[in-house]
Design a protein around this nucleic acid. Structure first.
Length: 871
RNA sequence: GCCCGGGUGGCGAAACGGUAGACGCAAGGGACUUAAAAUCCCUCGGGCCUGUCCCAUGCCGGUUCGAGUCCGGCCCCGGGCACCA
């Protein structure tokens, strides 16, 4: 018998796929389309296990649907712009373009070695002008339409390197390279008006039935529709020095009578005004502007404030409320000012105590004791169910949430001091990046005409590629050859925009470009779009659950409104895979920086329960710190390189392992031993089938002549294929699909019936197993398919449906419980009625023991499964 | 801090309200072998009163004939938080 040699075998079969043209895809009317897409990778240089997992899952679904008769589009490409290329340039002095293209070549070879059924003719890279020209083309249209506009936005500014930093480049409030304290700075930026689509992005979530509820919930909360009121506070002229009004938005206008102060952001006009001639306040405002713009940082810092000495007038009581500057109020959220109700909000309560501000309780229980205490604010604030009524509110006393809300808002509206308002948490999407390696924003700044979009015939604005960034600002801004230009309107000297677009823009529409990737006539060819879109199955990491998926949904609607695509949503069904995680190890360097060490370079000591207790660096034998399980990443240097594993075990083994080790939506813990197990299974399967293949083919299965054991095996085989079809197609639990095949192959391994009927049944079971595995381990499946004399490609074989006649059984095993505890098991004929099953259950000897001295109160018979005797 | 997940044997997991631990890894024992590797077979959550018994799915409480699964409250771990992709 030939040995299982995955290296030669896989390369031979991959060549066969290519030479037979099996992977070429085009629009055909004779078969329905199925578009299966896995999120394209950033070309970091080497494939990591997250990629292997992502693309294997996509490939399984694509191949499965192909066997089910669909014309399957499964493309691949490169999300090629982004920060890492500039970091590589800083480190190695290579132009980002060259670095990126070399990485693409390497990763493409690795992907091809995995045996993924991609049509490489459709490959795209977002850094190619042929791709981003269409992004610029759409930008111009949207700019003219007003969906893209310009306003000031806040960025992290590194005062030493004189550059804008990404949130990732701010570590503990300092620039990652300079170590300087980062400041917030406002600069002009272009924005997509995504908030105009907020309502639709929210309501269309309901039609995404193929999406995990978890992701829909995250997006719903992110969009964050809330109902409340805008409330207007007149300035106290004596303290502010002029007439004016302060606006706040609140979801709880019902608590307005408990508002005892106002907090504004450091950037708020009132704060700026108060700081004039108040050095202490000016210093405080400056301190608020230090640090990063990341929301997680803002939300976890200590809440601080300072009085401005200004007051505003409470619109209902006329009381004067002090205005504070507070570091927790975000400028750019709502009005940049909030009303504070310390009695019923945790943060306001803490703040009021810290600065000795009054606390006015406005709710009490509708029934029972009024036991207001400092710890009770939270439940009180949250309860909108009528269990609380207002108190200390004068004419509004005794109302529940809804009644108080309505009464107070009505009075505010009557006096012109407020109005009912729906608000979204979602903010417009700022896309300007002060970076080189991105898609140029096609705008020309003219001293007389203002911002002029680049005319369509001048597109694309090509990014010069022979540039090496130096970390001090955007090199484009120092290149007159790039920015010097004439105004397309008036012809006078003008300056080209040097900011580039957020890389999320490229990844927001690539799925549509794959329908017609080479088109020079259109962003998306209408016929191709109609045939392929929307994506039937999208697969990608859960870390993209909000931003990428929301932006892509938004873009689909933008493109729809431009007449480029039809339908409201880009992705029908979504599978969010969990992350691939591995242990992390590090050493602390001088200055507190961590040097992350790859797991392959450490020796691990475990206790007798197998838990890791210590680790040392192989190179020097000295201890390293254990950092816990985290997502495999370059930054934590805990990646396992798939390449070495493929060379050692073959692609099928790696694919089998990543599918088998965990359900796809859960995180996957890396295990070298698990890979061995996957390899072992494939070797066993190989021997099993090859032993059968060496013998002359048995006659086809004749169900009429089978004995009980043969019928049993046949039933198990057909049950297996039914389960695998359901597991891949509906449940998308590839781990249980594989387990089902393993279970059957264990039975086949013990099968010793050499009669013609026995061999016929065994061979049928093997063929079903090969088909079942073909989407997951396509190379070995093809080889075994051929060995059993089957014609053509198994990837083009029809997916086998279970034979209903084979699934029929004569007897069932029924579990018997007494009061919900398993007490016995009975065998009953399949057609036994419920009473008969119940009686048989009561007669079971062990069950009888538990029935002694008790009377049967109820008998629950779950057909085909179990009987529960309630005594 | 806020939003969303997860927690089951030594480990990865299964159980789609109905037999907790399928399938696999590791470990132990055996067969084969001069030996090792490979392969095959057996054992494998805990307990002691060895019974088709008792306990056991992060912790506490509830719903149900029946809860790992549903509900409420907590603890721990992970993801996202708008300039990493």
């Amino acid at each position: 018998m030939q040995d299982y040699e995955p290296q030669n075998l896989e390369l031979r079969i991959q060549r066969n796929w290519i030479s037979s043209g099996a992977l070429k895809v085009c629009e055909t009317a004779d078969r329905p389309a199925f578009y299966c897409l896995a999120m394209f990778p950033y070309p970091s240089g080497r494939l990591h296990m997250g990629h292997v997992r992502n693309y294997t899952i996509g490939d399984v679904i694509a191949r499965f649907q192909r066997m089910r008769g669909y014309n399957v589009l499964q493309p691949m490409g490169w999300d090629a712009f982004g920060l890492p290329a500039e970091n590589a340039a800083l480190k190695h002095g290579v132009p980002p373009a060259r670095w990126t293209r070399e990485n693409i070549a390497q990763m493409k070879a690795q992907l091809q070695r995995l045996g993924l059924a991609y049509d490489w003719n459709r490959e795209i890279a977002t850094c190619d002008p042929s791709y981003y020209r269409w992004e610029q083309w759409l930008f111009v249209r949207l700019f003219k339409k007003g969906v893209i506009y310009k306003k000031a936005g806040m960025v992290n500014w590194d005062p030493v390197d004189q550059t804008v930093l990404a949130n990732e480049q701010v570590i503990d409030g300092r620039g990652w390279r300079s170590g300087a304290l980062v400041e917030k700075r406002e600069i002009p930026m272009y924005y997509f008006a995504i908030t105009r689509y907020a309502e639709e992005l929210l309501s269309d979530l309901d039609q995404l039935e193929g999406w995990p509820e978890q992701v829909r919930a995250m997006q719903r909360n992110w969009i964050g529709k809330s109902f409340g009121a805008e409330i207007v506070f007149d300035y106290d002229e004596a303290s502010i020095g002029e007439k004016g009004q302060l606006r706040v938005y609140s979801t709880r206008p019902d608590t307005l009578m408990g508002a005892t102060y106002i907090a504004v952001a450091a950037e708020h006009p009132l704060a700026t005004r108060a700081a004039e001639g108040n050095p202490a306040l000016a210093a405080f405002i400056a301190a608020c502007k230090a640090g990063s713009v990341a929301e997680a940082d803002m939300a976890t810092m200590e809440k601080k404030g300072m009085p401005t000495g200004q007051f505003v007038v409470h619109p209902l009581t006329g009381a004067k409320l002090p205005v504070f500057v507070a570091n927790y109020v975000l400028w750019g959220y709502g009005e940049g000012a909030v009303m504070a109700v310390p009695a019923h909000d945790e943060r306001d309560f803490a703040f009021a105590n810290k600065y000795a501000l009054p606390i006015v309780q406005v709710y009490k229980p509708a029934q029972g004791e009024d036991s207001f205490s400092a710890t009770q604010w939270q439940e009180w604030y949250a309860a909108k169910d009528g269990s609380l009524v207002t108190v200390n509110t004068g004419k509004y006393d005794g109302l529940d949430f809804t009644a108080a809300f309505d009464a107070i808002v009505a009075d505010l509206e009557a006096s012109g001091h407020g109005t009912r308002k729906t608000q979204f948490r979602l903010r417009d999407w700022g896309i300007s990046r002060q970076r080189y390696w991105g898609c140029p924003i096609p705008i020309i700044h003219c001293p007389s005409c203002g911002d002029v979009p680049v005319p369509e015939q001048d597109l694309p604005v090509v990014l010069p590629e022979d540039v090496v960034p130096d970390g001090a600002g955007n090199p484009l801004a120092k290149m007159p050859s790039f920015y010097a230009c004439k105004c397309p309107n008036c012809g006078s000297d003008a300056r080209r925009e040097t900011d580039t677009m957020d890389t999320f823009v490229e990844s927001s529409w690539y799925y549509a470009r794959y329908a017609s990737p080479r088109s020079e006539r259109a962003m998306v060819e209408p016929d191709a779009a109609r045939y392929w879109l929307p994506v039937d199955q999208y697969v990608g990491g859960i870390e993209h659950a909000i931003l990428h998926l929301l932006y892509a949904r938004f873009f689909h609607k933008l493109m729809r409104d431009e007449g480029l695509v039809t339908g409201d949503e880009p992705f029908k069904r979504l599978l969010t895979q969990g992350m691939v995680v591995a242990d992390t190890f590090y050493r602390e360097l001088d200055g507190g920086k961590k040097e992350w060490i790859n797991p392959a370079d450490v020796d691990i000591t475990r206790d007798d329960k197998g838990r890791m207790i210590a680790a040392t660096l192989k190179a020097d034998g000295q201890p390293v710190e254990i950092g816990g399980m985290e997502k495999m990443s370059k930054s934590k240097n805990n990646g396992v390189d798939p390449q070495g594993l493929i060379e050692r075990y073959g692609a099928d083994t790696i694919r089998l392992f990543v599918l088998f080790a965990a359900p796809p939506d859960q995180s996957l813990e890396w295990s070298d031993a698990g890979v061995e197990g996957a390899a072992r299974f494939l070797k066993r399967l190989w021997r099993l089938v090859m032993t059968e293949a060496e013998q002359a083919a048995p006659p086809p299965v004749d169900p009429a002549v089978l004995n009980a054991a043969q019928r049993d095996l046949r039933r198990q085989a057909h049950q297996m294929i039914a389960k695998v079809g359901d597991d891949i197609g509906r449940r998308q639990t590839f781990n249980t699909a594989i387990a089902a095949v393993m279970e059957l192959s264990n039975v086949l391994g013990r099968w010793a019936d050499d009669t013609p009927a026995g061999r016929a049944v065994a061979r049928e079971a093997m063929l079903l197993s090969i088909c079942a595995l073909a989407p997951m381990v396509p190379h070995i499946a093809q080889a075994l398919w051929e060995a059993l004399g089957q014609p053509g490609l198994v990837m083009d074989a029809a997916w086998p449906e279970a034979d209903p006649a084979a699934l029929v059984r004569d007897e069932l095993e029924i579990v018997v419980q007494v009061n919900g505890k398993r007490r016995g098991q009975i065998r009953v004929p399949v057609d036994a009625d419920q009473d008969a099953v119940g009686q048989a259950a009561l007669a079971e000897p062990n069950v009888q023991r538990f029935l002694e001295g008790a009377s049967v109160r109820k008998l629950i018979v779950v057909p085909g499964k179990l009987v529960n005797v309630v005594v």
